[in-house]
Write a protein that binds this DNA or RNA. Structure first.
Length: 269
DNA sequence: CTATTTGTTTATCC
DNA sequence: AGGATAAACAAATA
């Protein structure tokens, strides 16, 4: 499930426990999720450290312990972070639990196991983190960068381009559809066919959708208003909030895409 | 039993 | 070389 706003929601779940000290760490098998991680070193390094930072960037999460212990988490398709207590039994699909002195237990679940845990011991944030593309709401996410990227990816469908994390960190399937719906762009449009005027609108709507999604979902997983495509896109028989006509669902750019054919009529130059 | 899933990585083709 | 596309990954759900 997790895209930009959901990831921010999960960051907030663990964030309040900053300042608390780690009593113990347990990892439950699942080599896949811990690929590349020295699990013994991870447990050892976290022990007796305070949680000192909780960061989100796009779909990536980063938790800092002490000064130079860093735990990175990607939630994949089905990952989630929860808070329990140190006496709760191990649940299904539980991969990591961090017990704190207060009796609180920080938990990471992921049934499909497309998620990933990373671990770094370093002075300053890990390199992979500092190399992430500028966030959608940062001042470095400029119109120029977006237009240049659209030109480079000119042969790909815009739906697929919006899912590329190296330019649009945090945009996932539903956000991409929401953004294109706001811009009235046909999701099958080739990126190179979008003129600069439409490109500027796209840039703006990306920021608006990101801001609104974080406001509504990112704080307490609220329900988006019915004026969004979001509430109508999942099941068959949904209607476009603008035209009231049936929405279409089809596989575009490798992903199920929902759009409103008579609303999203822009097909470019 | 089959088809579907809100994500990324890898292979393959061009 | 670099871009575009599809398959693979694993498990729940309908």
């Amino acid at each position: 499930m997790p895209e930009l706003a959901e990831v921010e929601y999960y960051r907030k779940r663990w964030s309040p426990y900053q300042g608390e000290t780690v009593l113990g760490v347990r990892m439950h098998s699942s080599k896949r999720i811990f690929r590349g991680v020295d699990s013994h070193l991870l447990c050892q390094s976290l022990f007796d450290q305070k949680l000192t930072g909780a960061f989100a960037h796009g779909k990536q999460l980063l938790f800092q312990f002490g000064k130079d212990v860093w735990l990175g988490i990607h939630l994949g398709m089905t990952g989630k972070l929860e808070v329990g207590t140190t006496d709760s039994p191990v649940a299904k699909h539980q991969h990591l639990c961090i017990d704190l002195h207060s009796g609180i237990r920080l938990l990471f679940f992921d049934s499909r196991m497309f998620g990933r845990v990373r671990f770094d011991l370093c002075d300053g944030e890990p390199q992979w983190w500092s190399e992430l593309a500028p966030g959608l709401l940062s001042k470095d996410f400029t119109i120029e960068r977006v237009l240049t990227f659209l030109r480079r990816r000119k042969g790909a469908q815009i739906k697929a381009v919006l899912l590329m994390q190296e330019m649009f960190p945090g945009i996932g399937n539903w956000m991409a559809d929401e953004i294109l719906w706001c811009c009235q762009i046909d999701p099958r449009t080739k990126a190179g066919k979008i003129d600069s005027e439409k490109g500027m609108e796209l840039h703006r709507q990306i920021q608006l959708v990101a801001r609104d999604a974080i406001a509504v979902i990112g704080s307490n997983w609220g329900d988006p208003p019915n004026s969004w495509l979001f509430n109508h896109r999942w099941k068959d028989g949904g209607n476009c909030p603008q035209t009231k006509e049936p929405l279409k669902r089809e596989r575009i750019g490798g992903r199920t895409t929902c759009w409103s054919p008579n609303w999203q009529t822009y097909r470019g130059m």
